[in-house]
Design a binder for these strands. Structure first.
Length: 210
DNA sequence: ACATTAATTGTGT
DNA sequence: ACACAATTAATGT
């Protein structure tokens, strides 16, 4: 708990940190646990202390695709919007590994927004960050640059796992990106020919040139 | 050790 | 996108 204070110090003011430590619960999740599910009321906004969370969204045709990852000191922009009006969740959040997070009661969100400038800029920053990400992927989709999206996906995956090997089948990658397996296989093959990575069964090794 | 089967990956149309 | 071939891993005998 003391280490937690240290981490928050860098971007939140002290009085706010005290309030967080006083009034907020710390929750733990194991790999694969569902933290937030579709159509559930979101009563807490998560602030990740350690571990990483995968945020998914279901399409009209029932297919799930990956929105983004959340790791240390990040929070969920989607959860925030839902919390404010106590709306039902449009997303699903799954623990990618063991996760510790602070759950912030939704009553506090408004209150802190006017009370603490650092909270306001923290929330604002995480929104613009997500917004820019979405703009970039929108651009990629508009120009059919699936290869760029795949590269970002792989980089992301290796960042959150901390490993240069990605242990997934082409099919799982395709599902998370909302495409077909064949195109992923072909793109990966090209990347392998360009000496960017090595392909094995259920494993992709990223090379230093990646 | 070998055969069978299932799952993953590669490729052409 | 689809179909099929090739490869690899898993399991049983």
């Amino acid at each position: 708990m003391t280490g937690l204070k240290e981490k928050l110090k860098h971007f939140l003011e002290l009085k706010l940190i005290d309030e967080i430590v006083e009034g907020c619960k710390v929750m733990s999740f194991k790999e694969g646990d569902v933290i937030i599910d579709y159509n559930k009321e979101i009563k807490f906004m998560p602030l990740i202390v350690s571990g990483t969370i995968r945020v998914m969204r279901k399409n009209e045709d029932g297919h799930e695709l990956l929105l983004y990852y959340l790791s240390s000191n990040e929070s969920c922009a989607m959860a925030y919007t839902c919390c404010m009006e106590a709306r039902k969740s449009e997303i699903k959040a799954i623990a990618e590994d063991n996760v510790e997070l602070i759950s912030i009661p939704h009553e506090k969100l408004d209150e802190w927004l006017v009370k603490y400038p650092s909270w306001k800029s923290y929330i604002f920053n995480s929104f613009t960050q997500r917004f820019n990400e979405l703009l970039k992927s929108l651009e990629s989709i508009a120009f059919h640059k699936l290869d760029e999206r795949l590269i970002k996906y792989l980089k992301n995956k290796s960042r959150v796992t901390g490993k240069s090997s990605i242990l997934l089948s082409h099919n799982q990658i395709a599902e998370e990106m909302g495409t077909s397996r064949v195109v992923i296989s072909r793109l990966l093959k090209q990347l392998e020919n360009d000496k960017k990575l090595l392909l094995y069964r259920n494993e992709i090794k990223l090379l230093s040139t990646f």
